[in-house]
Design a binder for these strands. Sequence first.
DNA 1: TAGGCCATCTGGTCCT
DNA 2: AGGACCAGATGGCCTA
Length: 172
Amino acid sequence: MPRKRRASTSSLEEYPSDEKYMKDDIDSRAPRNAANARERARMRVLSKAFGRLKTSLPWVPSDTKLSKLDTLRLASTYIAHLRAVLRDDGEAHPETTKSLSLALSWPFAIQNNNATALMNNSCNVSSSTSSSCNQYRGQQATHDIQNFHHSGHQSVSTRHNLQGGEQQLSYF
DNA sequence: TAGGCCATCTGGTCCT
DNA sequence: AGGACCAGATGGCCTA
């Protein structure tokens, strides 16, 4: 839903209400209004791009509310994770190292009600990709986002109400 | 009610 | 010259 926007204080309110001046004002503002429209369209494209980026992130259900900053941070962390996976792919014992890498480098920690565990189910060990598994689980979850600001750094976490109880994923 | 997030407006600068 | 891009300012909406 488009937000209401204040009338520009620098133009409309300062001009006399006479029709001629109004017309002149409208005419003189036409280029500025056109520029505003282009800017709105540009920002809409940007917002859509953020939306698409969010949907490409595993562990982030499509209905999750993420700020643009959070989206960028999660995407950056996810890219780092993928790089680590690719790096480990070429090493001597790919099966064991990959599993270890997934468990250790994955940016999101799953937190049960009382304890924290990294990738504490079959996803991190037996599934071919953590992403597909994560997305599947994400679709089944209801969630909300919490931002925590403390000690000069930030973490973002998403709570999931899964069938077996509430879990939480977060990045730092 | 304060703070975070966002959409919008605006003027300046860069690019084609 | 006109459009794209950018950053600052502003105000509305939402949540803790």
